[in-house]
Simulated scan of single mutants.
Amino acid sequence: MAEVLFYHLESRPLEAVLPLLLEKTLERGWRAVVEVGSRERAEAIDSQLWTFRDDSFLPHGLAGDDTDADQPVLITTGEENPNGATVRFFADRAVPQSGEGYTRLVYLFSGHDPDAVAEARIAYRTLRDAGNQVTYWQQDDAGRWIDRTRQ
């Protein structure tokens, strides 16, 4: 079973949170896949990851190239895992259905989107009831993460 982390974004947007989580993932020696809801959003995240901070380099690519298997971080709109990632991120309304094949799933959703919150609640229950270790993290007003896991 996978460890599943739900991140309820409120005070900081995806563009500020995702690069930091990906950096931590790479620091641990893990590969990651980032699944998003559309090709346009994948391209926007790709662009943002190249420029999110002047003093950082976050190696990544968009799925669909000959180099997919070599990418430490791969951005996709599909369910594939061509880079052999052990961590899968879900953002922009991509919703995890199963933790199978991964050590960790990270589900990021906007607290300002009622539909995304409703989808997250369903996914939380489904993944928890399937036996995955599930935690729920919510931002406080300063952007710090507070563990709000309900047992």
Rank of each mutant, 00 (worst) to 15 (best):
D65I: 09
G61P: 04
R41M: 14
P59T: 01
R28M: 15
W50N: 06
A2K: 05
P96D: 04
Q151F: 15
E43H: 03
D141H: 11
V17K: 02
E119Y: 15
V33E: 03
L26R: 08
A85I: 02
L127Y: 08
S56L: 15
L14P: 02
Y7L: 11
L105A: 08
D129H: 15
A118P: 00
L26M: 02
H8V: 08
S56A: 14
E35V: 10
L74E: 02
D92I: 09
S98G: 02
D65M: 14
E27V: 04
K24E: 11
A69F: 13
R93P: 06
I146R: 13
R41C: 06
T51C: 14
P13E: 11
S11W: 02
V17S: 03
D55M: 09
R12D: 05
I75N: 01
A44N: 11
E27R: 11
E40H: 14
A118K: 07
D113G: 03
L74H: 00
G61S: 14
L9T: 06
W137H: 14
D70W: 11
L74Y: 03
R39P: 07
S47P: 12
E79N: 11
R53I: 04
R144A: 15
T51D: 12
D66G: 08
S110D: 13
L18S: 03
P13D: 13
D113M: 10
Y107V: 07
D140P: 08
W50T: 04
Q139C: 09
F90Q: 03
D68C: 01
E43F: 01
N81Y: 02
L22R: 05
V4T: 02
T51F: 15
R121P: 10
G131M: 07
G29R: 06
D141N: 09
D46M: 00
V34Q: 01
E23R: 13
V87H: 05
A16Y: 10
Y124V: 07
I45M: 03
A63F: 08
Y102H: 13
L26F: 00
D141R: 06
G37W: 02
V95G: 08
R88C: 12
D140G: 12
V134N: 06
P72S: 04
R93S: 11
W30Y: 05
Q71H: 04
V117A: 05
T25P: 02
V87K: 07
G78K: 06
G99Y: 05
E15I: 13
N81F: 05
A130T: 10
L21C: 05
D141A: 11
E80T: 12
A69H: 08
R121D: 11
G37F: 04
G37D: 06
T25V: 07
P72I: 00
